[in-house]
């Protein structure tokens, strides 16, 4: 069971409290009635479904009930960031450095405690 950080509650809560709500940053036109067939197709039917980092909507249904956005790696299932609805997409390149396995685990205990070694908490 994943832990998901709700950007409104500002804490990690168990996955059970959340519901997935589809791809994020799909913008509904302010002139909805008049958009072309192609634009409607793009808006309603086409989703990116990449392998790797996805931007998706979640709802903290059994909590604050707010919808928010998340960047998640579909390969590792790691949440890289969560942010409020309406905020811009976070910078993907920033995630690459953090995407590796836990820093704590992959260095010997002695080195883990070596501040100079740059071990991250």
């Amino acid at each position: 069971m994943l832990l998901i950080r709700c950007p409104y509650c500002e804490e990690e809560r168990p996955e059970l409290e959340f519901r997935h709500a589809g791809e994020a940053h799909v913008v509904r036109s302010s002139d909805m009635a008049e958009i072309s067939d192609e634009a409607f197709e793009q808006f309603f039917f086409i989703r990116s479904n990449p392998k790797g980092i996805v931007f998706e909507r979640w709802r903290h249904l059994h909590g604050c009930a707010r919808f928010f956005n998340a960047a998640r790696d579909t390969v590792s299932d790691r949440f890289l960031a969560t942010y409020k609805a309406g905020e811009p997409k976070p910078d993907v390149s920033k995630f690459a450095a953090d995407a590796g396995p836990a820093a704590y685990a992959n260095v010997p205990p002695a080195e883990l405690n070596d501040r100079e070694g740059g071990a991250k908490q």
């Binding site: 396995p101 836990a102 704590y104 685990a105």
Partner: peptide
């Protein structure tokens, strides 16, 4: 070998 989580 390579750890994926905070464990040892």
């Amino acid at each position: 070998g390579l750890y994926a989580q905070d464990c040892r």
